[in-house]
Structures are given as C-alpha cells and as structure tokens.
Amino acid sequence: MTDKVRDQDKTHFGYKDVKPDEKEKMVAGVFHSVADSYDVMNDLMSMGVHRLWKRFTIELSAVRKGHQVLDIAGGTGDLTKQFSRLVGDTGRVVLADINESMLRVGRDRLIDQGIVGNVEYVQANAECLPFPENTFDCITIAFGLRNVTDKAEALRSMCRVLKPGGRLLVLEFSKTNNPLLTKVYDTYSFSLLPAMGKLVAGDSESYRYLAESIRKHPDQKTLEAMMKEAGFVNTTYHNMTGGIVALHKGIKP
C-alpha cells in the first residue's frame, strides 16, 4: 500500500491532494523554510520529549563499533551525532537528506560540535537510495517517512541497501487510541503549533503542513504491514507517549 490516494496520479500534501512531483517540491519548500529554526522548534513543539524518543531509538538500534549506519531524512543530525560515537573510528555514519538546507544546517552543527571523521553527508531521496545493495547494518528514518511521496518505494529501497540481518527503525508520529489524548493533541497541533511556528520561525503554514501530514500518516498496524510488504521480517513496534509516536523495527532477512 502507498500513500497515493484513489487517483494514482495524486498524493497528499497535508490535507491537500497534489501530484506526486508537486509534493516533493512542496515538502522541499517546507524544509527550506524551517531549516534554520528547526532545532529550536523541535524542542518547543515536543517540549523536549523528542530527545527521549530518539534516545529510545538509539537503544533499540543495537549499533556498535565498526557498524555502517544510514540516517536517512536525517535533517539536522540528532541521531547521526549519537551514532557517530557508537560506531567509533572503524565505523561510518551517513547522514542523508533530500533537502540541501537541512543537510547544511546538520553538517555545520555536527562539525561545530567536533563530530568529524566518521560521518558522511549525502543528498539523497529515500525512494532511490544511491548505495550498493547490502551496505548498512542499521538504517533509521526519524520523522521523515511521512514526508516521502512514495513510502512503499522508500521502504523497498531501504531494504535493498541493508545487509541481511540489518535492521530498519522508523520513528514517526502515529495514532493514539485514547480519545482524550487525541483531542488534546489535535488542539495542540492545529492551533498552538502553527501559532508557535509563526512566533518563532515566522512561518505558520509550514507548521500547519507538519500537523496535517501527521494525521495523514499510516497508523501503527498499516505501517507494519507496509514494512512486511517491502520485505522486512520480525517486524514490531513500540508506542511512546500514548501512541503519539511509534518506533517500528524490521529486519532484512
């Protein structure tokens, strides 16, 4: 299953139906616009909790010295920073993103923090990863998959470049099954979030898109089924913060 709607030539951009190539440009526009204020907004929007979600992702990655890791849609490099420490001098982390502004902010930030030597930066689309088959021990995509136009294609592409036995971790907003939490969360993301976006980043539209894209993203079970369809086995997921966020794991057979 893909995120394409009935008409094969249409996909979602938030709540709007758009042509697939238009979505790519529109998503690019959003991330060019938010790149400089992305880190501050991330902390504000999640009240810092995104750090814990990412921390749990690192724990589940089982990455160790010498591993090859791909952090796709890696943006400003939060996960890459941690992986760089774990893989050591003998390993390698590739921070990849489709958007050059996000990649630039990420690269500058990591270099400023002295993270050099085992990190490479690659501008790439998750749907067609420019790496040979069986390259990585672990691939992570954090808060990125919902922005990808053809998610099924992206999952297949990730499976291809993973080594057999390697794991994919997808950290993404998901669905809560607590109606009260859903209501609070809706109010927060559709009213407060764009307002914060306007205040801090001077851009409410981009943050409205982010809120809408979260609602359009497949729920836990659907995403797990998509991972299986793409070729992953032993798939599981962990709900965090009442299901607002879920971490999916799959292994390449």
């Binding site: 749990f56 690192i58 724990e59 589940l60 089982a62 420490r85």
Partner: peptide, 14 residues
C-alpha cells in the same frame, strides 16, 4: 563506558 564518559540504556542486545 567509553572515552567520552558513560552512557546508560535500558535496552541492549549484545
């Protein structure tokens, strides 16, 4: 334990 200090985790597979 590593050269940068300690890291605590609740999960480990190795």
């Amino acid at each position: 334990l590593d050269s940068l200090g300690v890291r605590c985790a609740g999960w480990h597979e190795g």
